[in-house]
């Protein structure tokens, strides 16, 4: 994970950023914050892709572009993360038979469930902590329902769904109150 501070230039000799201690501390904190969300963002990139399967280089490119270069991963460190996710059965891979034999990654069914829950949790968390930073976060409530029990992100296009797929909570009442049933 590359901290933003690493890319920041010093625009003066007496600026705080010229302090080694400050740089190191901020870099450590930024890296810690990035580390927690990088796997989730990688999964999101794989899930959102139209191809439904992506090779490492494309994942990285999409991640950098879609996060406006805020979340930058040291390119070589992407692969250990992908390997870990594959080991945890969140994603699976397929190797090309010809050419450079690129490895393509896609999400497993189990991975999608895990992702929906984590994405829901992260969305609700972001919404909850936003006021602390004087920011406003608007969750797309018209598109998704966040399970009141476990924060699982439920796509409202699936109108047949009655229970949360993670905790089994009956979401019908919630849907009725929104006029969706």
């Amino acid at each position: 994970m590359v901290a933003i501070i690493k890319r920041v230039k010093e625009y003066g000799s007496n600026v705080l950023i010229s302090s080694q201690e400050f740089r190191e501390y901020v870099e450590k904190q930024e890296t810690e914050i990035n580390r927690g969300i990088s796997s989730l963002c990688i999964l999101s990139i794989i899930k959102q892709s139209e191809e439904k399967e992506l090779h490492g280089y494309k994942i990285l490119k999409d991640l950098t572009n879609q996060t406006n270069e805020m979340l930058v991963i040291e390119e070589g460190t992407l692969y250990p993360i992908l390997r870990k996710l594959e080991e945890e059965k969140i994603i699976k891979s397929r190797r090309e038979e010809t050419g450079r034999k690129k490895k393509f990654y896609s999400m497993t069914e189990y991975g999608e469930r895990v992702f929906n829950h984590l994405a829901g949790f992260y969305s609700k968390l972001t919404e909850a902590i936003a006021p602390l930073f004087d920011v406003k976060v608007n969750l797309k409530q018209d598109k998704y329902l966040y399970c009141p029990m476990c924060a699982n992100k439920i796509d409202l296009t699936n109108l047949e769904l009655k229970f949360c797929t993670i905790c089994g909570f009956n979401i019908e009442q919630e849907l009725i109150s929104r006029g969706l049933r």
Partner: peptide
């Protein structure tokens, strides 16, 4: 070996 091959592919693509 697979890991190194993947890294190599990445370097060339980039």
């Amino acid at each position: 070996k697979e890991i190194l091959a993947e890294l190599e592919d990445h370097v060339w693509s980039k």
